[in-house]
Design a binder for these strands. Structure first.
Length: 274
DNA sequence: CGCGCTCCCTGGCCGC
DNA sequence: TGCGGCCAGGGAGCGC
């Protein structure tokens, strides 16, 4: 589900829940694992400590404690929400943080593709989930020189390339489709064949779309909701994603759809050059 | 190593 | 209304 804009919004929501001096009194795990094991024995490492910061790296949300990070990833259907009592616990709730504010911060995830873990700060950079991540798309590190360099010789499609978190993080299926449309580049074009001009357009389009989506509260297709259970509205201005068979907003050509590397992809074959 | 494919899991929707 | 099949914002792991 969530790509960078949605994770960014959830992260801002968590920041508000961890008001000054709010800490975690206890953690309940309602099952033993999600995509991987839940940190049943590590919870003591972060109890009764005031969080030092709440951050986002790629599609992970990081809550900082003295010596540990509490990390979560929403996978396709993960969500954080706040409840005031245990009567409100639902079927797919897996982790309950009992806060000193007497609120319950609950992680739910029907498909269980998500992650919730507690890791030592000094092991963070070597953690396999983090050590291979590429630059943040909204940072200066994601620039033409960098993109050009890492895309040389890559036979894979540009769509697969920008969705690969080793190259640049935070871009998933929706924003890859939207950014490539705005950049006028076909999702099927080989990464190695991109010109610097096209790379410049892809970077600019990605950044503009991600930033604009954050302002819209993200894209809510099926499941995504922010921590207040509000839906985003960026999906209302998607130009190609989910618009198979509809006319291209620029030229009227019928929007195409095709599975590329296992993910459904939408584009205008006239506006986007291959 | 690079690349492509499959799988993890549940729920919602569509067509019969 | 019931049920099978298909699809979904991600990413790890496998085989070639």
């Amino acid at each position: 589900m969530p790509e960078l804009p949605e994770v960014e919004i959830v992260k801002e929501g968590l920041k508000k829940v961890f008001k000054p001096n709010v800490f975690i009194k206890d953690i309940s795990f309602l099952r033993k694992n999600l995509r991987s094991s839940l940190p049943l024995k590590k919870k003591k490492k972060i109890l009764k400590q005031i969080p030092k910061s709440v951050q986002r790296r790629a599609k992970y949300i990081l809550v900082e404690f003295t010596d540990f990070w509490m990390i979560s990833h929403l996978g396709m259907t993960g969500a954080w929400r706040v409840e005031t009592n245990l009567q409100k616990v639902k079927t797919h709730d897996h982790v309950i943080l009992h806060l000193s504010s007497d609120e319950l911060l609950i992680y739910s995830d029907p498909r269980r593709f998500g992650v919730f873990d507690i890791i030592e700060k000094n092991k963070f950079l070597n953690d396999k989930r983090f050590k291979t991540l590429g630059p943040e798309p909204l940072s200066d590190e994601f620039n033409v020189e960098f993109f050009f360099k890492i895309s040389r010789g890559k036979k894979t499609t540009v769509k697969q390339f920008v969705m690969d978190q080793k190259n640049v993080v935070g871009i998933g299926n929706i924003y890859a489709c939207e950014a490539l449309f705005e950049a006028c580049v076909s999702p099927l074009k080989q990464a190695r064949k991109l010109t610097k001009n096209q790379i410049e357009k892809i970077i600019a389009a990605s950044q503009r779309i991600l930033e604009q989506s954050i302002l819209y509260g993200g894209s809510s297709i099926n499941d995504y909701k922010d921590i207040d259970e509000k839906k985003g509205s960026f999906q209302t201005i998607h130009k190609v994603y989910g618009r198979k068979g509809e006319p291209c907003v620029k030229c009227g050509t019928t929007v195409r759809a095709k599975v590329i590397s296992g993910r459904n992809s939408f584009w205008c074959s006239k506006c986007q050059k291959s």
